[in-house]
Nucleic acid binder design. Structure first.
Lengths: 198, 198
DNA sequence: TGCGAAACGGAACTACGCTCCGTATCGTTA
DNA sequence: TAACGATACGGAGCGTAGTTCCGTTTCGCA
């Protein structure tokens, strides 16, 4: 899966020193440009910001998804690792689920355009979608299972649709003060509770 | 607002006969291409399907949003009109809300790429966003207010974020069998219920 | 110091949105 | 019905952006 040149976070310990340095430069430049113009910023802009040619970008990060993943890897890892911790700490599995989802939402809404790019069918971003899934789906499954086992939520909602739903709700957040993704996600999490029999 | 050439559904009763005919041809062609390739299909493709030049498209529909609106106007109107009817018919306002939202979701998930295009910040689609809002927000508000007045849902959720949330949840539906937008929207609607005090 | 491999840069190719203007068509008037 | 102005048409052409390709430069080892 990581035959694409960049793995882990630091530039791979392989190859020439200038290449490693350029990779780091690129990562920094991309982070800066993403923050300003969103993850769909023109490749030329990122190259310019980094002071390198476009060929260099494509050599290090064959697809835009590779670059995005490399830039945000740390934060996604952190989010993934927070899942089990919250489950252990929280008063109930449902509360832990709520908090964990909140973390994910906080991450997404502050990354301009990331939630939209993460869409499954977004050409050129399939790898990005897959990465988020690989990393977060197991965590989400664990939390959902725990909450279901505790009888706090229905057990017929899959982690995949749920996680995608949360991601979808974050699209466009941060560009419109009237739209509060956090709130809607809270409602969705409430909606997971078993239908109360009156 | 409709100084753009096309209004209502039939070609405007104005101007030359060939122009009217072309406008209808364009609408049919666009509907066909949208169904196959989604609403982001290249303008050239639509022109080719209709057997006209691109200039003709831009003359009749200055922006892509105008074309999309024209193609789907009927269905959006139908959806909007169904709101009050459901409210009058349904057993409860909350049930009516659920059914109405279901109608909206059914519409969106069958229109490849429409939910995504409807995004507020999508360059060139602002008009589309505005049209959906103009048409559906009042209906949604009415349903939400009725349900809130009946004490069936919290009263602190605005119609705008709710409607956008529903739209967002529909993004990417229909391209992935694992993702069930309908289900998630149902959960969201359940999440609207007042927190039950134990 | 010399040399082959690795990396670099950016011109060039493709795809697409959108505009612009010469040409064709319509329908009205003499 | 012939002629003419207004209206509409078509598609070449321009700008922008993604992606590739290859001649040039740099690195690091012998």
């Amino acid at each position: 899966m990581d035959d694409s040149g960049q793995n882990a976070d630091g530039p791979a310990a392989s190859k020439r020193k200038d290449a490693r340095r350029n990779q780091q430069t690129l990562l920094d430049a991309a982070a800066a440009v993403f923050a300003t113009s969103g993850v769909e910023a023109p490749v030329r802009d990122i190259a310019a910001e980094a002071g390198v040619g476009m060929g260099t970008i494509y050599r290090h990060f064959p697809t835009r998804a590779d670059l995005v993943i490399a830039v945000y890897r740390h934060q996604v890892e952190t989010c993934a690792e927070a899942g089990p911790a919250l489950l252990a700490a929280g008063p109930t599995p449902h509360a832990a689920l709520g908090r964990w989802v909140g973390l994910f939402v906080d991450f997404l809404v502050t990354k301009h355009g990331l939630a939209a790019a993460m869409q499954a069918d977004n050409a050129g971003f399939e790898t990005l979608h897959a990465y988020f899934l690989d990393r977060l789906l197991p965590v989400c499954t664990e939390l959902l299972d725990a909450a279901a086992a505790a009888g706090e939520i229905r057990s017929d909602v899959g982690a995949y649709p749920f996680l995608r739903g949360v991601g979808n709700l974050c699209i466009g957040a941060g560009t419109d003060p009237r739209y509060d993704a956090r709130r809607l996600v809270e409602l969705l999490v409430e909606g997971l509770r078993p239908p109360h029999r009156p």
